[in-house]
Every structure is written in C-alpha cells, then in structure tokens.
Design a binder for these strands. Structure first.
Length: 321
DNA sequence: CGCGGCACCTGAGAGC
DNA sequence: TGCTCTCAGGTGCCGC
C-alpha cells in the first residue's frame, strides 16, 4: 500500500538506474495497466520509443519521468527536441517498478516492459508489475506550475509539472509546502478532518494508514469539522503527518505484505511502529502509559477502516468541538 | 460545493 | 475440498 514514503523510496532507487538512458522498446502485456493513456497501446509505445529519461520526479504519490524526444534526423527531421512529455506512473495499491536483467523470468503480474539502452552492468529492463491494477502508466505533457516553484521533487527539479499531476498539492516533506496555504484552504472548507487529509488536492502523500497515525499523534478525531480547527490543531496534525512520513522514509517505507516491494526488490519495513492503524482491540499506547483504559477502535469511514482511540481522540458530547 | 457511493481489481482468509 | 463472502484501498467519477 504505497503512500508517499514508499513512492519516494521507489523514486530515489529508480533515478539511479534510469537517468540518461534511452527507451529502446516497449511491450504492453496487459492494456488495462495503460488505460489512462487515452490513445491506446500503439500511441503509448510510439511516444516512448527512442526517448531518453531525464529524471524521475515525484509529486504526492504521482511519479513521472520527463523525456527528451528528438525528431528523427535526416529527410523531414530537424533533430531538435520535441515539447516536454513525461512517462507517468502511479503505483495504486500494488504497483512495483522493478529493474531486472532480461533473463529473469517474467513476474506473475508483469504488465509493461521497457527495454533500456545498455549501461555498464545495469539491468536492461524496467518492469511495471501490478497485481490489482489500480496503478498504471501513461504519457502526459509537462506544463508550468501555478506557483512558479518546481513541479515535483527530483534530482534536478524543473519548473514544470506533469499535466495529470497538476491538481495535486505539495506534500508536507516538500520544501515548497506552505502550511499557511493549507490552513487557509482547510478552514474555508466544510468537511471532516480525515477527509481533508486524504484529499490530495489539499495536502498530498497521505493515505489511509498515515492519516490515522497523524490523527492519533495529534489527538484529533477524524470527523473534526475543518472550519473549527485552530491553527495549533492544524499545525499539530500536519507536523505529525510529516513526522510519521519521514520516519517511514528513513525506514525504507512501510510494508504489510509482499505487494509492496521497492525498486531494488527489497521490502520496506516500518509497520511494527504504527500506533493506531490495524490495532483494533489493542490498548492505546498513550493511554496505557498514562494508566488509562483506552482501546483502539475500528470504524467504517469513507468506505474504509478508520482506527482511533476513543479516549484521547474524543468526539465532543455536546456536539461542539 | 460537498459528500456518499461506487467502480476499478486480485487474492487471502473466513465461514459453511 | 470447494464454494461464497468479505476485506484491503488510491483515485476518479457520478448523482444528489
């Protein structure tokens, strides 16, 4: 279940292997994995072949590789660079980007294979593997950012963003993230706090797991109306999200099952340090440390499970927050 | 505008 | 053993 830290682990790993390499050929083994590429497999392949990967860039959970595509030289071709396009990837629930040597047998859920130009000792194939097919690959254009800052986080940040990610807000680990802007927008919206944390247009990179962890750390209820949030509350929950995500990043990403594997094929491991998510029926660590009887409760919210402690993340009795 | 609901998917595990 | 049901969840879209 990749959230921001996992995607960043993949980004860093991938950048090392693919920067500067040319896509020699592309094989789409399951067209469902490129369904967000509206013009189909042939167009997808045509856009990628003979393009060179300039970088690997991330915004929230979206990952893209800006490409340099040259017009064919010779008759009719100028040899000049074409307008900016990028290969976009979203890992969804179970997507993996793996570097493999060609003789390694295909993975069971291999969906797309890119053959890269050879580069001393590096694996020649970039494989997109995805069991549940919530993720996918597609080609998108690059557009200027609305705030003039870099489009995303990469080795050489560009003032452009992949069109399909331009609605995604910066994440709390982004040096250009603005808490003031987040607070202003969240105050103006009438919605529940967890819903706002999961809204990638407000603040990105937070999924169900880290939303619950951040709310627990900030001692806030998931349904807290955002327009009642004090600045200190909002700061606490954003700081908590930032903390939990940088901890996970330092540990190489969270992993609960074998579905998430980073680009080098090794699972991250951070799940053991979760305080709320997945701990239904277990004592709240903060409450037990204080001698209180809090037990983590699981509830359905937004069609998914939410975990919280009824004692330290209470709902008000009188309906006033 | 906001929100609930749902579709998109597969596989693991529970229950019968 | 084998069937059916439930659950996991990021994102986008639809209708109220």
């Amino acid at each position: 279940m990749p959230e921001l830290p996992e995607v960043e682990v993949v980004r860093r790993g991938l950048a090392r292997w693919v920067r500067g390499r040319t896509i020699m050929s592309v094989e789409v083994l399951d067209p469902r994995s490129i369904r967000r590429h509206a013009l189909g497999a042939e167009d997808f392949i045509g856009n990628l072949e003979n393009s060179t990967v300039l970088d690997v860039v991330r915004r929230g959970k979206f990952l893209w590789m800006p490409l340099r595509t040259e017009e064919p030289r010779g008759p009719g071709g100028t040899g000049e660079a074409m307008p900016g396009v990028a290969l976009m990837a979203h890992l969804g629930m179970s997507g993996q980007l793996l570097m493999q040597d060609p003789w390694v047998p295909d993975e069971k859920h291999l969906k797309v294979r890119l053959r890269l130009s050879s580069s001393d000792g590096m694996p020649e194939e970039l494989r997109f593997v995805d069991q549940r097919i919530f993720g996918g690959l597609f080609v998108t254009s690059l557009v200027p950012t609305s705030d003039g800052g870099p489009g995303g986080q990469g080795e050489t940040p560009l003032p452009e963003i992949a069109d399909e990610a331009s609605h995604i807000a910066r994440d709390p680990l982004d040096p250009h993230f603005s808490f003031d802007e987040f607070y202003r927008r969240v105050k103006a919206r009438k919605t529940g706090l967890k819903r706002a944390l999961l809204d990638q247009g407000f603040i990105s990179g937070i999924g169900n797991i880290y939303a619950d962890e951040a709310l627990w750390r900030a001692r806030l209820h998931y349904a807290r109306p955002t327009d009642t949030l004090k600045r200190a509350d909002a700061l606490r929950v954003v700081d908590a999200a930032k903390e939990v995500m940088s901890d996970a990043l330092a540990a190489g990403g969270t992993s609960f099952d074998s579905l998430y594997v980073n680009v080098n094929g090794a699972s991250g491991y951070f799940a053991r340090s979760l305080d709320a998510y997945g701990r239904a029926g277990e004592p709240c660590r903060r409450c037990s440390a204080a001698g209180l009887p809090g037990v983590i409760k699981r509830e359905q919210f937004m069609n998914r499970s939410s975990y919280s402690c009824p004692i330290c993340q209470p709902k008000p009795r009188n309906g006033r927050w």
